[in-house]
Design a protein around this nucleic acid. Structure first.
Lengths: 173, 173, 173, 173
DNA sequence: TTTT
DNA sequence: TTTT
């Protein structure tokens, strides 16, 4: 239920392979870094200047499993989710905020191609092995705080904790 | 032009009066703090738990002027804009990131009522005087970083700089 | 599941009270006539010309019950649904098509006020009695075909049949 | 300007090549037939049943030119526009209504691939010759009324007139 | 870090 | 009439 509207719609390409983790109950949580491109006319030069915006996407439940399995660096994807800002403590003890686009059972994810980055033509075919990095988070992308935490759900001061979802962890979506 | 899609749609209420500033060229730039409400079922208690998400909105051009003039704390509003993340330096010299919903000529703002917070019934009527705080930013609401900068376009290290828009500052939207 | 995206987002006002009907299984099906206003500059006169677009909305399940109970002629409402075109036979035996915005469990309905048309101030309060017209449909508003059918689920040639939803009629949404 | 919200977002595939026409002033007007796919669970069989919805899209201005040039039967496309219902007279003199998704300067069109239907790999490359049928309208697709009119802007009773846009015809978008 |  |  909602007494408001909170909706985000994005189409862009993945800057890297999905980062798949699992909750203690075995539910997938997938992070994506999504680039949306825009260009605008520079008033000095009159030239069109490309501009890339990077978005941090978090998927839960079944849509997370599909994303983790089929999406790869470079994949074009449609995302429908909601904005959520999480508070966490930096190593200096100060508050930090990270805004993410959360895709849960109310959201949507549509693969618009399935190209991996190996140059392969695996159109519509699942990648061999879903990437899973439960122990070693990748370096954070531009525009997002460093992610140095250990396993999912073990945030600690001085690192960015993982997102939590509103839904019951025991019941798969 | 865009080779991607970057769209945010929100309906919520203002947590405080709009913060109106002006660029050197006299164009309005308005910041809003918008709350969207949601509720979800707590799995322990089975109760519905209300949850408020706060969004930082930045309006440019004509829509900014209208927002600054007619919106007030408590106003219900429809916002259509795009996600944008800005990088700035904290007082400790470290990088910080703030994600905002930018409403420019491609976006939309719809007043869904015009209630001020004084309990007045100025339904559909303009507020007496548009609030303008070019010298003293209000404290940030829950879920958003503190805003301690001075006037618009004078960011300094240790404070959060103001957003900049892609559009020609001299040409009103 | 969907391999495409089909989404409609509207904010407007009801041209008349909701038309509530029930399936044989007791599920509510509500029809709304929603007006969205726009204005554009006439190139002859240079004047802004108002233009109203009428939309036929069909709600199913729980959201239908809420709509039927709380919405009234004049109510402002947010609608999120999908486009659906139904084929039916006119009295002359020829095919007709009606496009509707369908709001089911994947959609959303948000009351933006609860004004009835009696000029009452029942803000946020339920109307006394949900209107139900299972036997006598109101005349269609501007921009929509006449609705002359009998009870729900008894379409006949020469009238516009009622919409059907994809979902199991026995299981409430 | 708008005092309401009227927005449609679609991702689907073209059922046929675009139909490009020109106004007397030389502005392109392009019609698309777009299929969006969905599937739902049949309650009798428990099977997933595919369901296709067809949409009539009308593009104006620059986005129309791009669509006419680069899209082909089978192309996947993102459409953002508004709902509009047009009234016209059937050959029997009776009123008919056709609902379209209008994409003008406020809308958006994104090619999600550029595949033509000849099986060619013209990825991102313009098709040899933009289809133009100013004299001979194609048979109407399923889910849409027959289109039997002559050239653009010469509707007559007994046929479905072409759509008109709110914008000044002389000024390219 | 993506894509065209 | 499309697509996977």
């Amino acid at each position: 239920m909602a007494r408001g509207v909170n909706k985000v719609i994005l189409i862009g390409n993945l800057g890297q392979d999905p980062d798949t983790r699992y909750t203690p109950n075995g539910n997938a949580v997938v992070n994506l870094n999504l680039a949306t491109d825009e260009s605008y006319k520079d008033r000095q030069t009159g030239q069109m200047v490309p501009k890339t915006e990077w978005h941090r996407i978090v998927l839960f439940g079944k849509v997370a499993e599909v994303a983790g399995q089929y999406l790869r660096k470079g994949s074009k994807v449609y995302i429908e989710g909601k904005l959520q800002t999480r508070k966490w403590q930096g190593q200096d003890g100060q508050d930090r905020y990270t805004t993410e686009v959360v895709v849960d059972i109310n959201g949507q994810m549509q693969m618009l191609d399935s190209r991996g980055d190996g140059g392969g033509m695996n159109q519509g075919a699942p990648a061999g092995r879903p990437q899973q990095s439960n122990y070693n988070a990748p370096a954070a992308p531009q525009g997002n705080p460093q992610q140095q935490s250990g396993g999912y759900n073990q945030p600690s001061q001085g690192s960015m904790p993982e997102p939590v979802d509103d839904f019951d962890d025991d019941i798969p979506f």
